[in-house]
Every structure is written in structure tokens, then in C-alpha cells.
Design a protein around this nucleic acid. Structure first.
Lengths: 150, 150
DNA sequence: CGCAAATGTATCGCGAACTTATATAAGTGT
DNA sequence: ACACTTATATAAGTTCGCGATACATTTGCG
């Protein structure tokens, strides 16, 4: 266990394992809206960060620029996003979420909460307490991770 | 915030949000081995639960049985898994991990740990402490989630 | 036992979602 | 005005998933 060195008195292996566990559970969660994975990720990104350029989105999602252009075309066709010209740069397009796109993200979020609730109910009060106390730190950790990738 | 009702004095919305944050960060993490997502998920499943039948794997990964047959064919071709007959049922095939497949999972896990370490180093000692104390509960929560999907 | 029904895999054809390469359009610098 | 960079779009090819279907083995029951 990597316990020393960089001022991290936390078992990195354990945390990594825990996060991977959650990923495996969450990723395969059956969801209401059956959409391709990258599509959902793009929508979430737009919810969090607001309108973005195609190029920025492609970098964030780690797919090619043409791939994202096609994806946005599909999304636009389905009425989940809108392309608007960037007023400050005639070459660029800003991808905006529509109300419908926002609703889908919201519905997914609530759906996941519904899956989680009965699981939380099975924990002991002490376990729930410890998780509740760790939440701010976990959120900050995720925040740092997002920054690290720019 | 949903604080009452089923004996869950934990803000489900906040926890859901935190887990989603980690998913978004982790899923798009650039990794050493560039393999399709479902492929990696299958390998991880085999690491955790040992040899499995095609049908079981297909259900766990939520893809069709023909889809999984093809996936396993690719994996076998790449030497990451082996097909062995089930001694107790002549119809069934058990998918076994090879040493090479195990190594890839291990490498990915370590890679993720390396990404996480510098982030953890930026947290305050109190934040690290709170996360460390919540880890057993988080692991149990993930465990419950896995059981819930059978 | 013998044969239908159930169960487990494999194959085929198709469509969706990526990729790389290339083209077009707009801004930037000299 | 000219080359150069940046932003997006189009085209062709590949990969990975699905549904339908076929085949093999096991199970259950008269």
C-alpha cells in the first residue's frame, strides 16, 4: 500500500478500487434513455460547462473532431442541442443544449438517484455518516481531476 | 434534498452527483492500453469473478449473446482469454482469463492509481482523513450495487 | 428408452458510431 | 494580397454492436 511519500496518508489503491467499483456499477446501469455512451457524456459536459466549441468538446471527450461533428449532427437532428455561430469568431460553432437535452440529463440523474436510494438504505447509520462526511472532499477530488485534464 | 423516508439521512442527490463526477473523470481517462470499453469491462469482470459462461457475461455486460461471442472471439485471438468447455455441461463454454489478460487489467489499475496520486496529494489532511474513513462504506455500497443487478 | 422442449453458442447480414484523410471557410501575420 | 493557422465539414473505410437464425447438447416426461 502506497502510504507514504507525497503526504498522502490514504491508501491510493483502495480509493482507486472503490472508484472503479462504482464505475463498473454505474456504467452498466440500465437507464431510461438508451443513448450511446459518448452522446450522454457530451450532454453532461454541456450541462456542467455551458456552450462549447466543437473542437473543445472533441478534446474533452477524446474522440476525433470529425467524429464529434457527426455526433453533434445527430444530436441536433434529435433536438437535444443547437449549433450557434460564435459571435467572436466566424469560423467557430458553439454547441448549445436545448431544453429537451437538459431534461434528458436531469431525468438520467434522477434515475440514478432512484437506483442508489435503496442501496443506501441498506447501510448502517455509521456507514452513511462516514460517506456524508467524505462527500465534500470527494467532490473536490473529482474537481481536481477535471482540472488536471484541462 | 431527500433526507428522510427510508432511514437514509444522507443526501442522495449529492452522493449521486459525486459518483457521476468520478465516472466522468475516470471513463475518459487516457489509458495505456487502448481497447474498446466493453472489452475492458469484460476483462475486469473476469478478474473479479473468475471464469464465466458466455451467457452470464452477456447479461452482466448488458450486450447481446451474439455480440459477446464475437467479443470473446476477438479477445481469444488477441490471447487475453481462453475458451474452455464446461466439464459439467457440454453445451457451455467457460471464458478464462489468460496471464496476459490479467496483466492488462493490473496495468490499467496501476495506471489509474498513478493518475489519482497527485490529485490526492493536493487535498488537505482532513479531506484525506474523511475519505479514508468512508472507504469501507463506499466499497460496501458498490458491493450492494453489484448484487442488486444479480 | 425416445423425443420434444429448453438451454448454450455460433454464424450471417445489417446498421450505428467511430476512425483517417481531405476539403472548405474564416481569421492572422507579414 | 499571400501564405499559414484554426475551426468545421465531408467522404470512405473499419469496428463493434444488434436481431434473426441455425446448430448442438441437455433435460424432462410419457
Amino acid at each position: 500500500m502506497q502510504r507514504s511519500g507525497h503526504g498522502t496518508d490514504l491508501a491510493v489503491g483502495d480509493l482507486t478500487r472503490a472508484i472503479e467499483d462504482f464505475n463498473r456499477y454505474y456504467i452498466r446501469l440500465p437507464v431510461v434513455q438508451k443513448l450511446p455512451f459518448t452522446t450522454l457524456s457530451v450532454l453532461d459536459t454541456l450541462v456542467q460547462s455551458g456552450p462549447k466549441r466543437l473542437t473543445e468538446l472533441a478534446r474533452a471527450e477524446q474522440i476525433s473532431q470529425p467524429g464529434l461533428t457527426q455526433l453533434v449532427t445527430r444530436l441536433e437532428h434529435d433536438g437535444l442541442v443547437e449549433r450557434r455561430r460564435d459571435p467572436t469568431d466566424g469560423r467557430a460553432v458553439l454547441v448549445h443544449l436545448t431544453e429537451r437535452g437538459r431534461q434528458i440529463c436531469q431525468a438520467r440523474h434522477e434515475d440514478r438517484g432512484r437506483h442508489l436510494l435503496p442501496l443506501i438504505a441498506q447501510l448502517t447509520p455509521e456507514e452513511r455518516q462516514s460517506i456524508a462526511e467524505a462527500l465534500p472532499a470527494l467532490v473536490r477530488l473529482a474537481e481536481l481531476g477535471r482540472q488536471a485534464d484541462q
